[in-house]
């Protein structure tokens, strides 16, 4: 018998699998396909204070072993999420959820975190300072250690829930941003968000994405994500949720060896809606194959 349990800031998950924000909605579409209670948890669609429609279409472009999205944080707003999505979610998901929060000002992050703090269904708050698809928000906070620290400090003051800051890979030194967040009181870190990319249509000779650029994700970015998790894990003493191109049980184990305590699955949910149950079912066998009896024991095993 193998042990797949992991613990994030005192919150124990049955397994490390967490579908990533923006690839799982509020869970309903997947709950129609399989019992999503088998997940460790999931991170709900990035939510802002006000409802947002997002960017013009086309928002999607295909790449080799990956894709670009420029959705632009389409969401119904925090009030709608609290009043409608969370009560609805209770019907089909009986575990705590990761609340993914985004914003365009420190005040907006603070207000969203203050509101979501009261919700028992929320296990941890994942503060997204790394969305590449909106102007004047998201990534603008995550690309400088000072700004990321300022957001961290401000939201920590209004919530008792663990705060995980979701970091951008689109920086020269992700370790500096990570350390600044840790020093400002972050309980954990999520990394990586998508990498800024683009495609050009040879027929029209113009960018495929209406917003020109977007966030590149999928198996192609796995080695970059793994490297960043490894670098950050060695430099901080708070738990990391690792993500970026994870598509198999083997990838999950590799991410944990690099230093992740839990692992998010993003783009792969969009091409294979059954990838999460598949990985959860395969994990025990793959663990046995590599002589792993407890996942918790392998965290950071590549450098410890």
């Amino acid at each position: 018998m193998v042990n797949t349990k992991v613990t994030l800031s005192g919150w124990t998950l049955d397994n490390p699998l967490i579908p990533a924000s923006g690839t799982f909605g509020f869970g309903k579409e997947f709950a129609e396909l399989w019992d999503i209670n088998m997940l460790g948890s999931f991170s709900f669609k990035g939510t802002t204070l006000e409802p947002r429609f997002g960017n013009p279409t086309p928002r999607i472009a295909e790449c080799t072993a990956g894709m670009i999205n420029a959705v632009g944080l389409q969401n119904p707003g925090i009030h709608h999420v609290i009043e409608h999505e969370l009560p609805e979610m209770k019907k089909y998901f009986h575990k705590k959820v990761v609340a993914n929060i985004s914003g365009f000002s420190i005040d907006e992050y603070v207000e969203c975190c203050r509101l979501i703090d009261k919700e028992d269904q929320v296990g941890i708050i994942e503060v997204n300072v790394s969305c590449p698809n909106v102007h004047g928000g998201g990534m603008a906070f995550g690309t400088s250690p000072e700004n990321a620290a300022a957001v961290t400090k401000a939201v920590k003051a209004v919530t008792t829930k663990p705060v995980y800051i979701k970091l951008s890979p689109n920086v020269t030194d992700i370790v500096a941003v990570a350390k600044a967040c840790e020093a400002a009181g972050a309980d954990g870190l999520s990394l990586i968000n998508t990498m800024l990319g683009m495609r050009i249509d040879l027929k029209t000779k113009k960018p495929v994405i209406a917003n020109t650029m977007g966030g590149f994700s999928g198996p192609a970015i796995f080695p970059v994500a793994l490297r960043m998790v490894y670098q950050v894990a060695r430099a901080v003493n708070i738990p990391i949720i690792g993500m970026g191109g994870v598509a198999t049980a083997e990838d999950v184990i590799e991410m944990m060896l690099a230093g992740a305590t839990a692992v998010q699955i993003g783009a792969q949910n969009l091409v294979d809606p059954f990838v999460c149950p598949k990985i959860i079912n395969e994990l025990p066998e793959v663990m046995q194959k590599y002589g792993i009896s407890s996942l918790e024991e392998i965290i950071g095993g590549a450098w410890k």
Partner: peptide
């Protein structure tokens, strides 16, 4: 018709505005 990723309503890649609110072309 719209460019889409998932096709089952979670990625918000194919959203459009309608008089009845925002809709996902795929779902």
């Amino acid at each position: 018709e719209e460019r889409m990723a998932c096709g089952f309503g979670v990625c918000m890649g194919c959203s459009c505005k309608t008089k009845y609110g925002n809709k996902r072309i795929c779902k």
